[in-house]
Every structure is written in structure tokens, then in C-alpha cells.
Design a protein around this nucleic acid. Structure first.
Lengths: 252, 252
DNA sequence: TCGATTTTGTTCTCACGTTCACAAGCTCCT
DNA sequence: AGGAGCTTGTGAACGTGAGAACAAAATCGA
């Protein structure tokens, strides 16, 4: 017999009033589209208008918005300002989030100078680096501080979000320090897989992965792979270095 | 009666020898993990080892690899070098892809200096900007050239991938120029939704969207929303500006 | 040579995400 | 007042993705 099941089959698992992850990822896009419409003086927009501005189809947009509540008016559309506020509130960007950036190389520099933070609910409270030659440097209206001050800063400014722009090597160690200092959300630009305890959210932005995904599709477009299936290469009978070396090579 | 159906139900739709999109997005991660293992002198690795290194579970990893072919050995594992080559070939990074970067602001600078390109199958052939005060500037071993030279460069170097690091304003126009010059894959860092014709692939990297997604989860962690559902706000009865203005303003 | 052991490749099932299609509800016009 | 015309919100169908579980295949040891 069918086990008692409180959820409808097919309904995405979400916590109380939770929103499907795919929808959460699109809310910021809608928010930006609404801001653009608002700046153009548009007061009301239909799901079709909004969907076009956000680059999705209107059915998906309506379903996404329906998870937030019933904020539209049938036969009319959505009030741009009203919906904008509701989404901002749902995401949590009506308040300001304190952010630290760790690793002030090229990318860290670029992010430190990025102006889109303040207007979007985020406030950079510190730029940190372990390199003494960088500490003290002025970037915009901020000064690079020593990574050793991390714990102090996190506690003082209630920092909950950390951005890692170090090279791959120190990234995990930086991550561990961030977590133990109390940071519970991390945006990682370093090309490594970071391990964090449960309860800490992590997102990754990786340039070369994005390019490689494009390359895959590009290769498909420009005629099929013209490469040999098996190149000059050591035959495939190596063993893990900590296993006894076996013979019996099925050479090629 | 059941309609004749050639595909098994539940099998992901893919074109001939195509690979599910979710898998394609993970292949670069596997490639990096394999490179790391290889650099550590590991010759063979099990799906469990690889999965740990890549931050996924082993069942998923095995299924992903099975789309490429049968490159493992039961009871043994995968030959690291061999698998690495196979994945690189499948992605298309055994050849070099020419890339142009358009928009040499902070982020463009950072990307231009990023060393991870050459080693991963990509070659930056030009840095372009429309600002005459930037043209001629030297970055690393490259010189910023005028955006007007785009078509010439794309044709000469067979550029198929373009990276847009301009502000939001000019991004669509830059995108259009890239496409008409012959670029068929675009990586967009500008905070706008770009429109491209069919056949052109586009991927987007957006810092503030990533931060907003983190903020959403962060808000859930730190107690539920303490914000009013309806704030001081224009009442929700505005109309689209191109409709006849109706009275009944419930102004505030 | 044969069984024990290991690890892949694959099948099956369930969960998640997207899209269609339409009833419900709102506005406007006659 | 009532019908025509839009647009939202949502139920249902379909497609995609993830994970458990296991048969198949390889190695190793006796």
C-alpha cells in the first residue's frame, strides 16, 4: 500500500514557505528587470513584458512569482514598484549585508572597485590580504587590511558573507578561517572545490569552467570532433601509486 | 493506446552522441580534479576518489562519465591521464580557442592578467575598448586595441569566443557587433540580459546575482523576515504609462 | 582454476523543473 | 448591467536530473 505522504506528488520539496532553488536564482534577475522598468517610468507591466525584460518565458515567470504570493492583478499586470519591493524583501536586500573580500589581486581589485554593491544591498566592510606588501594600499575609499584582523572585523561588523578571490592554494585555508570567524555564506572565485560544514552556503564563480562549457558547444557547431579517439599516450593500465604494481599490461 | 515512442521514457533528450547539459557543466570540474591528481603523481583513481576531488557523489560521476564512453576498468578505476585526455577532447580544449575581451575596465584588466587561460585551451588574441584613452595601453604582453578593429581581428584569428566586460549600457551593442563579426559564443559579465540570434551561445556571470542568492539563504538562517509585508509605498493601482490614465488614485 | 573482492556501467525510481492550457478575476465599453 | 477582452494564478503533463542498487567485469589469492 502507498505510504502516507503529506506532500502532493510532484510538488518540489521546500521548507515552510521556502521557494524552489531554481526560482531563487531567477528572483535577482526579475529584480533587476523591475528596476530597469521603474527607471524608465513604467508603472505597470504584464508577465509578458517582465518575462521579455528578464529573458525568460512568461509562464515560468508567473509560476516563480506565484511562490511569493499573489501580487499581480488579473487583466492588468503587476505594479512595478510594489512587486519590486516584494521581491527585494523576499531576497533580503532591503537590509544591508556586510561583506569582506579576501585576496586583493587583480580580481579582488576589480570587485573592490565595483560600484554595483551599495545600490544592491551589500556593503564591503573590509579588503583583506595576507601579503604585507599589499596591506595599507588604498583602493577607492578603502584600505587593505591584514588577513589576521579577520575575526575582529567579522565580529565588529556582523559580517555574514565572505568573498574569496585568492589563488587556489590558500583558498581552503581562508575558507576555514572565514567559517570559524562566523561567516556563513561564501562566494568563491578560486578554482578549487571548497569544503564547508553544514549550515554554510557556498557558491562558485569560475571563469575557465564557463569558457570550457562554451568551448564544448562551439566544438559541436564547427563540425564534429576531428581528433583521434586514442592518441599517443601511456597505455591504460597504470595503477594507483599505493597499490602493488601489477604486470599483465593489456598494451595497445 | 500508448503512442509509439522511440526513446525510453525518462532518458534525457540529447542529440546524437550529445551529453546532457548538467553533465557538460561538470566535465570541466572533473578535468580540473584529474589534472590535480595527475600533478600529485596519482596514476589511477576510483570513481570514489574522483568524486571526492570534484565535490560530487560517485554515482553521479560514474553516470556522467558513462556518457563519454566506457573509459574505466571494473575492479580498478580510471587511468588518470587517459580519462583526462578523453574529457579534454570531449570538451574541445585539446585545441586552442581564440578569445577577444571587450571592455577593459577593472574586470577586463583582471581577466587580461589572468594566467589560467593558456594552460586551459584558450588564447586571448585581443583586448578591445572603444575609449581612445585606453587604446594603446599595455597590459601584460598585450596592447589594448580599438573596438573598431573587431571585425578584422575576428576574421584574421578565427575568433569564435567573445568576453564582454563593458558596463551594462553598451553591452547589447557590443554583443551585436561580436555576433555580426562572426563570434558564436559569448561570455557576458555585464549586468544585462543580452539577446542573440539562434545558433549563438551565451553564458552569463553576474556577481550581484550570486550575492543576492546567498543573501536569500542567509536571511532564512538568521530568523525569519522581520519586515512588514506592505511598507510605505505607492498603492498598487498604477497603470501602464501608455494606457489612458484612470482616476481613483488611492494616493498616499 | 575457482572463488572472493573490488569497482564500473546501467537500470529503476523518485524528485525537480518547465511548459501548456485554462478557469478565475479584473477592466472597459456599450 | 452585462458582455467582451485581457491577464493572472495554477493544475496537469512532460522532460530532465539525481541517487540507490545491482549485475557485469576485472583483479587477486589460494
Amino acid at each position: 500500500m502507498t505510504p502516507a505522504r503529506s506532500r502532493r506528488p510532484g510538488a518540489p520539496t521546500r521548507t515552510e514557505r521556502g521557494i524552489p532553488e531554481a526560482t531563487v536564482a531567477r528572483l535577482p534577475v526579475y529584480l533587476r528587470a523591475l528596476t530597469a522598468l521603474s527607471d524608465s517610468g513604467i508603472a505597470t507591466a504584464s508577465s509578458e513584458d517582465l518575462a521579455t525584460a528578464a529573458g525568460v518565458n512568461s509562464a515560468k515567470l508567473r509560476k516563480d512569482l506565484s511562490y511569493l504570493g499573489s501580487y499581480g492583478t488579473r487583466g492588468v499586470g503587476y505594479d512595478v514598484e510594489y512587486l519590486r519591493y516584494q521581491i527585494a524583501r523576499e531576497i533580503g536586500v532591503t537590509q544591508d549585508w556586510a561583506v569582506v573580500i579576501v585576496g586583493i589581486g587583480n580580481l579582488g581589485h576589480a570587485l573592490a572597485n565595483y560600484s554595483g554593491f551599495g545600490t544592491r544591498g551589500f556593503r564591503i566592510v573590509a579588503l583583506l590580504d595576507a601579503d604585507p606588501t599589499l596591506v595599507g594600499e588604498q583602493i577607492g575609499d578603502m584600505i587593505v587590511r591584514d588577513f589576521a584582523e579577520l575575526e575582529e572585523i567579522v565580529a565588529a561588523d556582523r559580517v555574514s558573507i565572505g568573498v574569496i578571490t585568492t589563488p587556489a592554494g590558500p583558498a581552503q585555508e581562508v575558507c576555514d578561517r572565514l567559517v570559524s570567524a562566523g561567516v556563513t555564506s561564501i562566494l568563491n572565485f578560486a578554482p578549487v572545490v571548497l569544503t564547508v560544514p553544514a549550515g554554510v552556503d557556498i557558491r562558485k564563480v569560475d571563469l575557465s569552467i564557463e569558457l570550457q562549457i562554451l568551448a564544448y558547444h562551439e566544438q559541436r557547431k564547427s563540425g564534429e570532433a576531428a581528433l583521434p579517439e586514442v592518441p599517443e599516450l601511456p597505455a591504460r593500465n597504470g595503477v594507483v601509486s599505493d597499490l602493488p604494481s601489477v604486470g599483465g599490461g593489456v598494451g595497445r
